[in-house]
Design a protein around this nucleic acid. Structure first.
Lengths: 207, 207
DNA sequence: ACTAGCTTGTGAAGGAATTCACAAGCCCCG
DNA sequence: CGGGGCTTGTGAATTCCTTCACAAGCTAGT
């Protein structure tokens, strides 16, 4: 399969969000222009993005909302349940465990891990907090698909290495640092410090 | 000033993180190659990124760690204090209020806002929670630089409009939706649902 | 059945970001 | 003080992404 740009995938996600809104409102069709306006892009971009995966529209009419939504869910792999483990039961980990968006989109949190013995054995919004020493054994047994790293920067690379070794292929990293993994492992980093500095830069360098 | 790509600014942020680590360890100099290896990029990329702002290195030797760190902090506008308001005192808002990274980098949270009367008047890690009705008046009086949106998707655009009208020029958005603002207002969106779907896509479409 | 009016899908053009590749410059050593 | 070994800074080449522009195709109205 042709290599798909990251930016394309992110936009597909955005389109899907609007399609779901339209589905809820019972709209039958939508044009690339309408999707573009909502998503802050251009109609050509929308059509190009979709064209990588097939042709979903009807000329002169636009796209069927439910059909395109289904197609996008298929493309994004949202047709199945993904099993997620959260590593780190601190503030971020706790906020994530409670986040409704996971379940809503088919991401099931199967366990949380922490080093702190006071936390181990407890629960986070119903999710069991386990000793991180069990990480490898549990991953081997449960085969989760995705790991969320919600731990301080210092330990992040070491835990990532353990996850990779245990066979995890997708990681969402909240630790404020860049991580290294083999090319068959996808790591996405959400780094708030970086975003804030981007804002600081924008405020500082406006002409 | 020449337009600087977003990706460049994000990388500067990453380089600064490593420089601070090196500063802590007392290292005197660093090469573009070393920064590249750590940051997951190439040495040419590092040098090109820096070249937009000046020339900071010594041929044959590399970059002085403290000098380059100072230069990057200057470029990123981190030499001053930025005043931040958090809108939304829910789970995400609460997690953000406690996040040490803000203060550490010169971002001071001056207030939080919420609609819920049970929360208004309370405190979030020492930060006063105010009625969102006061938003415009407070912004006019306090002149915060940055607003963090930690509210559900539905109300996000309306609150953003109010913030823009009140004069805010930089927004960090945690609501899972794309927002529209005038071009002189910088909006950065952190969207976890999108990142998760990116992982789902990567897991689904591996060749 | 034909025409007018839209909207898609897509090659080609254009623009932006990354990588290449090498001259210029610095340091150290003999 | 001159040469060898590095490393920067930067035009040129390349690769990647976005935008343009238009033929093809669908619908509705007559």
């Amino acid at each position: 399969m042709k290599r798909i740009a990251d930016s394309t995938v992110r936009r597909l996600s955005i389109y899907l969000r609007f399609l779901e809104e339209f589905e809820g409102r019972g709209l039958a069709t939508v044009s690339s222009d309408e999707l573009a306006r909502r998503g802050g892009t251009t109609s050509a971009q929308v059509r190009k993005d979709l064209s990588f995966f097939g042709s979903f529209g009807k000329r002169g009419l636009g796209y069927s909302v439910p059909e395109l939504a289904t197609a996008l869910r298929e493309i994004l792999g949202l047709g199945r349940e993904w099993r997620v483990v959260i590593v780190g039961a601190g503030k971020i980990g706790a906020a994530l465990a409670q986040y409704r968006g996971f379940k809503q989109r088919g991401f099931t949190i199967v366990a949380a891990y922490d080093t702190n013995p006071d936390k181990v054995g407890g629960r986070l919004d119903g999710i069991e907090i386990r000793d991180i020493a069990r990480l490898e054994r549990d991953v081997a047994a449960d085969h989760p698909d995705i790991a969320v790293l919600a731990i301080p920067a210092e330990g992040a690379q070491a835990v990532l290495d353990r996850l990779v070794y245990a066979g995890i292929k997708a990681v969402l990293n909240f630790a404020p640092m860049s991580l290294h993994a083999p090319s068959d492992v996808t790591v996405k980093t959400v780094n708030m410090a970086m975003e804030l500095e981007g804002l600081s830069f924008a405020l500082t360098n406006r002409e």
